[in-house]
Design a protein around this nucleic acid. Structure first.
Lengths: 226, 226
DNA sequence: CAAGCATGATCGTCATACAATCTGCCGGAT
DNA sequence: ATCCGGCAGATTGTATGACGATCATGCTTG
């Protein structure tokens, strides 16, 4: 459980708190830590064999990321996604995506456009394999590539912020792979509009995509309350 | 050692870290802590007479709020607003404001619309008095009222996030009060469109307001680099 | 059965310690 | 004189132990 083999390179997590943070995020994304569950400092200390100093920082970080909420004497309560929150997230996300995509189309080189294709393919692949971790990772990379090329760091920041919560929905959606692969198909259409340097077409596809994704997410939430 | 001679109560800051956090935020907003300045744990400890435990949490919180950036062995570097960042913030803010305002118009009761008038008046008052703290406080309250009534908590969250950085510009703008009072005048026009339940008109006014505010902010940044 | 108290859980804060890492300077070698 | 290397200081990362405050809970008692 608390094995430290420093020779093993599982990632660029040189700091204890980053490693644990990653672990906990994963636990939340995979549903091991269910929404509504409480995570106390002590529990973190004992589970991961870390000190309270580190545990506190992990908890505060999760709170800042809105993956949970610190409630005074109950520890961190893992965020529970409500349909309303999901609706709001997708509504905001739609506007941000449009903003970023328009800037991307205006600024991207052909090479940067080409990179997009590789990322969409990777997402397709991850979806086909049902590899949720790869899905999340590539999704994050896709967003990064978009906002970096579009030169909109702050928008990207906010998107990553929203993305963390969206992940909570995506883990539900994984139970019905058809939903996600359909979504990825729409992503491909967005990419095509981007490649064609057609901002209005891209915007239309994005909004369509968001409506579909929202419907899918709501379906997951409502249809599978377990 | 733990001697607190702070008889004056600036607010409901029951926790040490909240009090210090507030102090530092204020110092940043007022320019006491200049952009680019470095804030180390030790400095915080000694300045406010707190422990490293608390100091660390304050620094991490400021980092999460993007009021600064933690760099590995140099402490927190206070954020430096670039024209590009300002442009981006206002661009994003415009979309979010439009989103929130449309929802507000659709959902607000007459009473909630009336509250808006009081808030705009308070902003006018604060601007006239040159009271930057009241300006920031009422501005925050205005945003809160908007997103609460519009039932868009997450958007509000993001707005508050952006607002923190916008404050860094506003402190510059205070040096030329004409700019701000003109801005508040436009706020009044937005309010009027809201009161008339005219979403398209409100959107137009919001976008006009944002353009003006952006221009003003850029002027402050470029024209007064001190 | 209800009110209030005792007890434990949990957090907020502090103090201290030590390792790792980075910075900057200083001295020696070329 | 310049470059290289290492040493001391600064700073962070983490752990540990301690204490008080606050809250929740269950038990005691009227």
């Amino acid at each position: 459980m608390s094995e430290q083999s420093e020779s093993e390179e599982g990632g660029p997590f040189r700091l204890v708190r980053e490693k644990v943070l990653h672990e906990v995020r994963r636990a939340i994304a995979l549903g091991t830590l269910e929404p509504g569950a409480r995570l106390t400092e002590r529990a973190l200390c004992e589970t991961y064999g870390i000190s309270r100093t580190a545990a506190r920082e992990v908890i505060r970080q999760l709170d800042a990321e809105k993956l949970g909420e610190v409630v005074p004497h109950q520890g961190l309560r893992i965020a529970r996604l409500t349909p309303k929150a999901v609706r709001e997230i997708y509504e905001i996300r739609a506007e941000m995506e449009v903003l970023i995509t328009r800037a991307f189309i205006a600024l991207a080189t052909e090479e940067e456009v080409a990179v997009l294709k590789g990322l969409v393919d990777a997402l397709n692949d991850a979806t086909a394999r049902g590899d949720i971790e790869a899905l999340v990772a590539h999704s994050s990379r896709y967003v990064s590539h978009m906002y970096e090329t579009a030169d909109m760091q702050i928008a990207g920041e906010l998107m990553q912020h929203l993305n963390a919560r969206i992940t909570l929905v995506r883990v539900l959606a994984m139970r019905e792979p058809g939903q996600i692969s359909a979504g990825i198909g729409q992503l491909e259409r967005i990419r095509a509009r981007i490649a064609a340097r057609d901002p209005d077409g891209a915007e239309a596809e994005i909004r369509k995509y968001m409506r579909t994704a929202l419907a899918s997410a709501l379906h997951q939430l409502g249809g599978d309350p377990a």
